[in-house]
Amino acid sequence: MSRIEVEHLVKDFGGRAAVNDVSFSVERGALCVLLGPSGCGKSTTLRLIAGLEEPTAGRIVIDGRDITHLPSKDRRIAMVFQSYALFPHLTVAQNIVFGLEVRGVARAERDARLGKVAALVGLSEYLTRKPGQLSGGQRQRVALARAIVSEQPVCLMDEPLSNLDAKLRQEMRVEIRALQQRLGMTMIYVTHDQVEAMTMADQVILMKDGAIEQAGSPVDLYQAPATVFAARFVGAPPMNLIAAAGPEPSVVTGVRAEDMRLAPPTGNGADAEVTSIEYLGADTIVGLRRSDDGDAILVRVPGRASARIGERAALAWDPAHEHRFDRASGRRLSAFPPSTDRSPA
Protein backbone atom coordinates (compact mmCIF):
# COMPACT_ATOMS: atom_id res chain seq x y z
CA MET A 1 0.00 0.00 0.00
CA SER A 2 1.34 3.36 -0.96
CA ARG A 3 0.35 6.92 -1.24
CA ILE A 4 1.06 8.46 -4.61
CA GLU A 5 1.58 12.17 -5.07
CA VAL A 6 1.86 13.80 -8.45
CA GLU A 7 2.97 17.41 -8.37
CA HIS A 8 2.80 19.88 -11.27
CA LEU A 9 3.61 17.21 -13.81
CA VAL A 10 4.36 18.48 -17.34
CA LYS A 11 5.23 16.49 -20.45
CA ASP A 12 6.03 18.27 -23.70
CA PHE A 13 6.10 16.39 -26.98
CA GLY A 14 7.80 18.66 -29.49
CA GLY A 15 6.37 21.88 -28.08
CA ARG A 16 2.89 20.47 -27.46
CA ALA A 17 2.07 19.79 -23.83
CA ALA A 18 0.49 16.33 -23.61
CA VAL A 19 0.35 16.71 -19.84
CA ASN A 20 0.11 20.25 -18.57
CA ASP A 21 0.61 20.96 -14.87
CA VAL A 22 -1.21 17.96 -13.46
CA SER A 23 -1.31 17.50 -9.69
CA PHE A 24 -3.21 14.94 -7.68
CA SER A 25 -2.69 12.43 -4.93
CA VAL A 26 -3.97 8.92 -4.40
CA GLU A 27 -4.52 7.50 -0.92
CA ARG A 28 -3.10 4.16 0.14
CA GLY A 29 -5.18 1.24 -1.06
CA ALA A 30 -7.39 3.44 -3.22
CA LEU A 31 -8.33 2.91 -6.82
CA CYS A 32 -7.89 6.09 -8.79
CA VAL A 33 -9.24 6.26 -12.33
CA LEU A 34 -7.74 8.64 -14.87
CA LEU A 35 -10.65 9.28 -17.17
CA GLY A 36 -10.91 11.24 -20.38
CA PRO A 37 -11.29 11.14 -24.14
CA SER A 38 -8.41 9.95 -26.30
CA GLY A 39 -5.56 12.44 -26.43
CA CYS A 40 -6.40 13.99 -23.07
CA GLY A 41 -3.06 12.98 -21.56
CA LYS A 42 -4.28 10.25 -19.21
CA SER A 43 -2.09 7.52 -20.69
CA THR A 44 0.90 9.84 -20.80
CA THR A 45 0.37 10.64 -17.14
CA LEU A 46 0.35 6.92 -16.35
CA ARG A 47 3.49 6.35 -18.41
CA LEU A 48 5.20 9.18 -16.56
CA ILE A 49 4.35 7.51 -13.26
CA ALA A 50 5.60 4.19 -14.65
CA GLY A 51 8.86 5.77 -15.75
CA LEU A 52 8.30 4.93 -19.41
CA GLU A 53 8.45 8.64 -20.24
CA GLU A 54 10.66 11.32 -18.75
CA PRO A 55 8.66 14.30 -17.44
CA THR A 56 9.52 17.78 -18.69
CA ALA A 57 8.78 19.18 -15.24
CA GLY A 58 7.14 18.18 -11.99
CA ARG A 59 7.58 15.54 -9.33
CA ILE A 60 6.22 12.09 -8.60
CA VAL A 61 6.41 10.86 -5.03
CA ILE A 62 5.42 7.40 -3.81
CA ASP A 63 5.37 6.90 -0.04
CA GLY A 64 7.51 9.96 0.48
CA ARG A 65 10.16 8.70 -1.97
CA ASP A 66 10.80 10.95 -4.96
CA ILE A 67 10.78 8.56 -7.93
CA THR A 68 10.62 11.17 -10.68
CA HIS A 69 13.95 10.18 -12.20
CA LEU A 70 14.25 6.57 -11.06
CA PRO A 71 14.23 3.82 -13.69
CA SER A 72 10.94 1.89 -13.95
CA LYS A 73 12.28 -1.19 -12.22
CA ASP A 74 13.17 0.71 -9.06
CA ARG A 75 9.80 2.41 -8.65
CA ARG A 76 8.13 -0.61 -7.01
CA ILE A 77 5.26 -0.64 -9.45
CA ALA A 78 3.53 -3.22 -11.60
CA MET A 79 1.75 -2.41 -14.83
CA VAL A 80 -0.90 -3.96 -17.03
CA PHE A 81 -0.77 -2.82 -20.64
CA GLN A 82 -3.67 -2.28 -22.99
CA SER A 83 -2.17 -4.85 -25.37
CA TYR A 84 -1.29 -7.07 -22.34
CA ALA A 85 2.36 -7.10 -23.56
CA LEU A 86 2.68 -10.85 -23.03
CA PHE A 87 5.82 -12.58 -24.28
CA PRO A 88 4.49 -14.73 -27.13
CA HIS A 89 7.21 -17.39 -26.96
CA LEU A 90 6.85 -18.03 -23.22
CA THR A 91 4.18 -20.13 -21.53
CA VAL A 92 1.60 -18.61 -19.22
CA ALA A 93 3.66 -19.70 -16.20
CA GLN A 94 6.89 -18.28 -17.65
CA ASN A 95 5.12 -15.02 -18.48
CA ILE A 96 3.78 -14.67 -14.96
CA VAL A 97 7.10 -15.35 -13.19
CA PHE A 98 9.25 -13.47 -15.74
CA GLY A 99 9.79 -10.56 -13.36
CA LEU A 100 10.47 -12.83 -10.36
CA GLU A 101 13.09 -14.72 -12.35
CA VAL A 102 14.73 -11.54 -13.55
CA ARG A 103 14.83 -10.24 -9.99
CA GLY A 104 16.40 -13.47 -8.81
CA VAL A 105 13.59 -14.78 -6.61
CA ALA A 106 14.34 -18.36 -5.54
CA ARG A 107 12.63 -21.12 -7.44
CA ALA A 108 10.62 -22.48 -4.51
CA GLU A 109 9.17 -19.08 -3.71
CA ARG A 110 8.52 -18.40 -7.39
CA ASP A 111 6.52 -21.60 -7.71
CA ALA A 112 4.57 -20.90 -4.55
CA ARG A 113 3.66 -17.38 -5.66
CA LEU A 114 2.80 -18.59 -9.14
CA GLY A 115 0.44 -21.23 -7.75
CA LYS A 116 -1.29 -18.75 -5.51
CA VAL A 117 -1.74 -16.07 -8.16
CA ALA A 118 -2.80 -18.52 -10.87
CA ALA A 119 -5.53 -19.80 -8.58
CA LEU A 120 -6.53 -16.24 -7.74
CA VAL A 121 -7.14 -15.28 -11.37
CA GLY A 122 -8.36 -18.72 -12.47
CA LEU A 123 -5.45 -19.68 -14.73
CA SER A 124 -4.27 -22.85 -12.98
CA GLU A 125 -5.25 -25.08 -15.89
CA TYR A 126 -3.58 -22.94 -18.54
CA LEU A 127 -0.08 -22.58 -17.15
CA THR A 128 1.64 -24.56 -19.90
CA ARG A 129 -0.12 -22.83 -22.77
CA LYS A 130 1.33 -20.02 -24.84
CA PRO A 131 -0.49 -16.68 -25.10
CA GLY A 132 -1.43 -17.45 -28.71
CA GLN A 133 -3.53 -20.38 -27.49
CA LEU A 134 -5.58 -18.27 -25.08
CA SER A 135 -8.73 -16.21 -25.51
CA GLY A 136 -8.65 -12.45 -25.04
CA GLY A 137 -10.06 -12.73 -21.54
CA GLN A 138 -7.49 -15.33 -20.52
CA ARG A 139 -4.64 -13.21 -21.88
CA GLN A 140 -5.96 -10.33 -19.83
CA ARG A 141 -5.81 -12.57 -16.77
CA VAL A 142 -2.22 -13.50 -17.52
CA ALA A 143 -1.31 -9.81 -17.68
CA LEU A 144 -3.17 -9.27 -14.42
CA ALA A 145 -1.42 -12.24 -12.80
CA ARG A 146 1.99 -10.94 -13.89
CA ALA A 147 1.19 -7.62 -12.23
CA ILE A 148 -0.12 -9.24 -9.03
CA VAL A 149 2.65 -11.80 -8.60
CA SER A 150 5.28 -9.08 -8.33
CA GLU A 151 3.58 -7.99 -5.07
CA GLN A 152 4.45 -4.38 -5.76
CA PRO A 153 2.48 -1.90 -3.69
CA VAL A 154 1.37 0.14 -6.70
CA CYS A 155 -0.38 -1.24 -9.77
CA LEU A 156 -0.83 0.83 -12.94
CA MET A 157 -3.40 -0.17 -15.53
CA ASP A 158 -3.58 1.27 -19.02
CA GLU A 159 -7.03 0.64 -20.50
CA PRO A 160 -6.82 -3.02 -19.50
CA LEU A 161 -10.34 -3.93 -20.59
CA SER A 162 -10.63 -2.11 -23.89
CA ASN A 163 -9.88 -5.20 -26.00
CA LEU A 164 -12.58 -7.34 -24.37
CA ASP A 165 -16.20 -7.77 -25.34
CA ALA A 166 -18.91 -6.07 -23.30
CA LYS A 167 -19.91 -9.03 -21.14
CA LEU A 168 -16.35 -9.97 -20.25
CA ARG A 169 -15.53 -6.34 -19.56
CA GLN A 170 -18.27 -6.18 -16.96
CA GLU A 171 -17.05 -9.38 -15.27
CA MET A 172 -13.45 -8.17 -15.24
CA ARG A 173 -14.47 -4.78 -13.80
CA VAL A 174 -15.92 -6.50 -10.79
CA GLU A 175 -13.03 -8.93 -10.55
CA ILE A 176 -10.27 -6.32 -10.78
CA ARG A 177 -11.97 -4.14 -8.20
CA ALA A 178 -12.37 -7.13 -5.85
CA LEU A 179 -8.72 -8.15 -6.31
CA GLN A 180 -7.50 -4.62 -5.76
CA GLN A 181 -9.40 -4.37 -2.48
CA ARG A 182 -8.49 -7.85 -1.34
CA LEU A 183 -4.78 -7.34 -2.00
CA GLY A 184 -4.84 -3.76 -0.78
CA MET A 185 -3.06 -2.45 -3.87
CA THR A 186 -2.94 1.21 -4.65
CA MET A 187 -4.10 1.36 -8.22
CA ILE A 188 -4.10 3.96 -10.96
CA TYR A 189 -6.39 2.90 -13.73
CA VAL A 190 -6.61 4.66 -17.10
CA THR A 191 -9.77 4.42 -19.16
CA HIS A 192 -11.91 6.37 -21.57
CA ASP A 193 -14.98 4.46 -20.43
CA GLN A 194 -16.91 6.45 -17.87
CA VAL A 195 -18.78 3.31 -16.79
CA GLU A 196 -15.48 1.76 -15.63
CA ALA A 197 -14.67 4.97 -13.79
CA MET A 198 -18.07 5.15 -12.11
CA THR A 199 -18.21 1.50 -11.09
CA MET A 200 -14.63 0.89 -9.95
CA ALA A 201 -13.12 4.11 -8.69
CA ASP A 202 -12.68 5.53 -5.23
CA GLN A 203 -11.48 8.65 -6.93
CA VAL A 204 -11.91 9.83 -10.51
CA ILE A 205 -9.59 12.29 -12.21
CA LEU A 206 -11.25 13.58 -15.34
CA MET A 207 -8.76 14.98 -17.83
CA LYS A 208 -9.11 17.09 -20.93
CA ASP A 209 -6.39 18.54 -23.17
CA GLY A 210 -3.61 17.54 -20.79
CA ALA A 211 -5.13 19.15 -17.70
CA ILE A 212 -7.40 18.00 -14.90
CA GLU A 213 -10.99 18.99 -15.53
CA GLN A 214 -12.36 17.65 -12.25
CA ALA A 215 -11.17 15.33 -9.51
CA GLY A 216 -13.45 13.69 -7.00
CA SER A 217 -15.47 10.64 -6.14
CA PRO A 218 -17.74 9.14 -8.82
CA VAL A 219 -20.67 10.59 -6.90
CA ASP A 220 -19.11 14.07 -7.00
CA LEU A 221 -18.55 13.87 -10.71
CA TYR A 222 -22.04 12.67 -11.40
CA GLN A 223 -23.97 14.85 -9.00
CA ALA A 224 -21.91 18.00 -9.20
CA PRO A 225 -19.97 18.16 -12.46
CA ALA A 226 -17.57 21.08 -12.26
CA THR A 227 -17.76 21.94 -15.95
CA VAL A 228 -19.96 21.45 -18.97
CA PHE A 229 -17.37 18.97 -20.26
CA ALA A 230 -17.57 16.90 -17.08
CA ALA A 231 -21.34 17.00 -17.22
CA ARG A 232 -21.37 15.66 -20.76
CA PHE A 233 -18.58 13.11 -20.31
CA VAL A 234 -19.75 11.41 -17.14
CA GLY A 235 -23.09 9.64 -17.23
CA ALA A 236 -24.94 7.87 -20.00
CA PRO A 237 -26.77 9.37 -21.69
CA PRO A 238 -24.84 12.65 -21.28
CA MET A 239 -26.45 15.50 -19.39
CA ASN A 240 -28.93 17.58 -21.38
CA LEU A 241 -27.85 21.17 -21.88
CA ILE A 242 -30.67 23.58 -22.30
CA ALA A 243 -29.96 26.91 -23.94
CA ALA A 244 -30.56 29.93 -21.82
CA ALA A 245 -34.23 30.34 -21.20
CA GLY A 246 -35.29 33.88 -20.54
CA PRO A 247 -33.54 36.22 -18.17
CA GLU A 248 -29.98 34.83 -18.07
CA PRO A 249 -28.47 34.38 -21.53
CA SER A 250 -25.00 33.80 -20.07
CA VAL A 251 -26.10 30.65 -18.24
CA VAL A 252 -26.31 27.11 -19.59
CA THR A 253 -28.66 24.88 -17.67
CA GLY A 254 -28.03 21.15 -17.46
CA VAL A 255 -30.53 18.50 -16.45
CA ARG A 256 -29.84 14.75 -16.35
CA ALA A 257 -32.06 12.50 -18.44
CA GLU A 258 -33.50 10.79 -15.36
CA ASP A 259 -34.40 14.15 -13.78
CA MET A 260 -36.61 15.13 -16.72
CA ARG A 261 -40.22 14.24 -17.26
CA LEU A 262 -42.46 14.29 -20.27
CA ALA A 263 -45.59 16.36 -19.75
CA PRO A 264 -48.64 16.91 -21.97
CA PRO A 265 -47.92 19.58 -24.60
CA THR A 266 -48.74 23.11 -23.55
CA GLY A 267 -49.12 24.41 -27.07
CA ASN A 268 -46.53 27.17 -26.64
CA GLY A 269 -43.03 27.37 -28.12
CA ALA A 270 -41.41 25.31 -25.35
CA ASP A 271 -42.87 22.04 -26.62
CA ALA A 272 -40.61 19.44 -28.25
CA GLU A 273 -41.09 16.73 -30.83
CA VAL A 274 -40.20 13.08 -30.12
CA THR A 275 -37.52 12.07 -32.61
CA SER A 276 -36.14 8.80 -31.21
CA ILE A 277 -37.13 6.06 -28.78
CA GLU A 278 -34.48 3.73 -27.37
CA TYR A 279 -35.97 0.88 -25.36
CA LEU A 280 -33.47 -0.52 -22.82
CA GLY A 281 -35.72 -2.88 -20.86
CA ALA A 282 -35.80 -1.32 -17.41
CA ASP A 283 -36.28 2.08 -18.95
CA THR A 284 -36.49 3.93 -22.22
CA ILE A 285 -34.50 6.87 -23.51
CA VAL A 286 -36.77 9.22 -25.40
CA GLY A 287 -35.06 11.74 -27.65
CA LEU A 288 -36.78 15.04 -28.34
CA ARG A 289 -35.99 18.07 -30.42
CA ARG A 290 -37.23 21.52 -29.65
CA SER A 291 -38.43 23.61 -32.52
CA ASP A 292 -36.39 26.65 -31.50
CA ASP A 293 -32.95 25.01 -31.38
CA GLY A 294 -31.21 21.96 -32.78
CA ASP A 295 -29.98 20.17 -29.64
CA ALA A 296 -31.54 16.77 -28.95
CA ILE A 297 -32.78 16.32 -25.39
CA LEU A 298 -32.83 12.84 -23.89
CA VAL A 299 -35.35 11.85 -21.25
CA ARG A 300 -35.14 8.62 -19.26
CA VAL A 301 -38.62 7.16 -18.81
CA PRO A 302 -39.14 4.12 -16.56
CA GLY A 303 -40.29 0.97 -18.34
CA ARG A 304 -41.70 1.32 -21.81
CA ALA A 305 -42.50 4.81 -23.01
CA SER A 306 -45.96 5.48 -24.29
CA ALA A 307 -44.67 8.28 -26.50
CA ARG A 308 -44.57 7.82 -30.28
CA ILE A 309 -42.15 9.35 -32.73
CA GLY A 310 -43.57 12.57 -34.10
CA GLU A 311 -45.68 13.31 -31.04
CA ARG A 312 -45.23 16.59 -29.22
CA ALA A 313 -44.58 16.85 -25.51
CA ALA A 314 -43.55 19.42 -22.96
CA LEU A 315 -40.38 18.97 -20.88
CA ALA A 316 -40.56 19.36 -17.12
CA TRP A 317 -38.05 19.10 -14.29
CA ASP A 318 -37.58 20.03 -10.67
CA PRO A 319 -35.44 23.19 -10.45
CA ALA A 320 -33.50 21.48 -7.64
CA HIS A 321 -32.06 19.14 -10.27
CA GLU A 322 -30.72 21.94 -12.43
CA HIS A 323 -27.00 22.25 -12.92
CA ARG A 324 -26.07 25.78 -13.93
CA PHE A 325 -22.91 26.60 -15.89
CA ASP A 326 -21.37 29.81 -17.13
CA ARG A 327 -21.70 29.85 -20.91
CA ALA A 328 -18.36 31.53 -21.55
CA SER A 329 -16.11 29.53 -19.21
CA GLY A 330 -18.17 26.35 -19.01
CA ARG A 331 -17.68 26.32 -15.23
CA ARG A 332 -20.32 25.42 -12.69
CA LEU A 333 -22.25 28.30 -11.14
CA SER A 334 -24.62 26.69 -8.70
CA ALA A 335 -23.47 25.22 -5.42
CA PHE A 336 -23.01 21.50 -4.94
CA PRO A 337 -26.23 19.69 -4.19
CA PRO A 338 -26.58 19.10 -0.46
CA SER A 339 -27.31 15.38 -0.69
CA THR A 340 -23.92 14.33 -2.07
CA ASP A 341 -22.42 11.36 -0.29
CA ARG A 342 -18.69 11.84 -0.72
CA SER A 343 -17.24 9.14 1.45
CA PRO A 344 -16.09 6.21 -0.65
CA ALA A 345 -17.02 2.79 0.58
Binding site: L52, S72, M79, F81, F87, G99
Partner: peptide
Amino acid sequence: DLREAAAIEGASRFTFFRRV
Protein backbone atom coordinates in the same frame (compact mmCIF):
# COMPACT_ATOMS: atom_id res chain seq x y z
CA ASP B 1 5.42 -2.55 -25.05
CA LEU B 2 7.19 -5.89 -24.53
CA ARG B 3 10.34 -3.91 -23.85
CA GLU B 4 8.43 -1.61 -21.52
CA ALA B 5 6.80 -4.49 -19.68
CA ALA B 6 10.19 -6.15 -19.26
CA ALA B 7 11.73 -2.88 -18.05
CA ILE B 8 9.06 -2.55 -15.36
CA GLU B 9 9.65 -6.18 -14.35
CA GLY B 10 13.29 -5.29 -13.82
CA ALA B 11 14.92 -6.80 -16.90
CA SER B 12 18.10 -5.15 -18.10
CA ARG B 13 18.64 -4.50 -21.79
CA PHE B 14 20.80 -7.59 -22.04
CA THR B 15 18.28 -9.78 -20.19
CA PHE B 16 15.54 -8.51 -22.46
CA PHE B 17 17.62 -9.37 -25.50
CA ARG B 18 18.48 -12.83 -24.18
CA ARG B 19 15.01 -13.75 -22.91
CA VAL B 20 12.75 -11.99 -25.39
